[in-house]
């Protein structure tokens, strides 16, 4: 029973992180229909930026965190401006391959500067943050990650529901031509969604780094986990991304705990194929409201 709770807690907090990364991914997809294969590398960029700022530049933690968020934001903005904007209107395969190429470039750069070894952050979370749940001790990292995850979720929920920029972003995702006819700055929306997605990715990267340590290969592999998550949740549903993330996180930890650790990485994809065959638009994907 304790083992079960332990797994449940781990699964939930990992899942929340998956959900957050997936949210950034969905945001890009919703507004500009780009399938971002470089998402894992965006996570890794954030994680390593934080590493540089904390260990080498010696910034205090909260400042390093904020600077990393800002840096990721700028990175996302730049990626959209330099690489994606010229491709607006090109066919799907080019856009996909461009992000694959970008992933490769980022990965190459990170490997060049940091190598393929495991790096760790200095211990900075206060030990008092851990929570005792019955017989199970939840380590501070998981508490912190869940906390950050929930805070970001609420913030984004409010942003999309109430702020003008959020509503504009949703309108572009909904009907681009109509948004254009009303003077919504569509290109600005694209850039903004990349920037926000990169920022969220950077944050998830930091938290993942705190949990597992940072290694270029592992973090960028997590970027690919985004796919089962978003398919489960439906490619165009932000809420679905979170739920999908939690389901995949739980699925992984339970498979790992009860069946076999080696199955961990393949189960999400097996689930994915099954879902695609049964419900092609995911569990929470918007059913296209069609009227003629």
């Amino acid at each position: 029973m304790d083992f079960f709770i332990q797994l449940l807690v781990n699964g939930l907090s990992i899942g929340l992180l998956y959900g957050l990364s997936a949210m950034g991914f969905v945001m890009i997809f919703k507004s500009s229909s780009v399938l971002n294969f470089a998402h894992g590398e965006l996570l890794a960029m954030g994680a390593f930026l934080f590493l540089v700022l904390t260990t080498w530049a010696g910034l205090p933690i909260y400042l390093a965190f904020l600077v990393t968020l800002a840096g990721s934001f700028v990175l996302g903005f730049a990626v959209e401006r330099l690489f994606l904007r010229p491709l607006i209107g090109e066919s799907l395969i080019f856009v996909i391959m461009l992000t694959v190429g970008l992933a490769s470039i980022f990965k190459g750069l990170l490997l060049f500067f940091f190598g393929g070894n495991l790096h760790t952050y200095p211990e900075f979370l206060p030990a008092g943050l851990g929570v005792q749940l019955g017989n199970v001790f939840v380590p501070p990292v998981y508490v912190a990650s869940s906390f950050i995850g929930i805070v970001f979720l609420v913030l984004f929920g409010l942003f999309f529901k109430f702020s003008p920029q959020g509503i504009f972003m949703r309108s572009v995702a909904d009907n681009q031509t109509a948004a254009l006819s009303l003077g919504v700055h569509v290109k600005k929306v694209f850039a903004l969604s990349w920037a926000i997605a990169a920022m969220v990715a950077g944050m998830s990267g930091i938290v993942l780094g705190v949990i597992n340590g940072i290694n270029v290969h592992e973090i960028s592999a997590i970027g690919l986990k985004v796919f089962p998550v978003v398919i489960l949740g439906g490619l165009d549903s932000i809420g679905g991304a979170i739920i999908g993330g939690i389901i995949i996180g739980l699925l992984e930890t339970f498979t790992c705990g009860y069946i076999s650790p080696s199955l961990r990485d393949v189960v999400p994809y097996a689930v994915l194929v099954c879902i695609l065959l049964v419900k092609p638009y995911g569990l929470f994907g918007l059913v296209d409201i069609e009227r003629v």
């Binding site: 003008p164 509503i167 949703r170 009907n175 031509t177 003077g183």
Partner: peptide, 22 residues
């Protein structure tokens, strides 16, 4: 636009708010 192109997943009021984009 021709053929009424609303933002289908936004509420009426949110649709109207998009009109303030300029």
């Amino acid at each position: 636009l021709e053929g009424r192109q609303p933002f289908k997943y936004l509420t009426i009021e949110e649709n109207l708010k998009v009109g303030t984009a300029t």
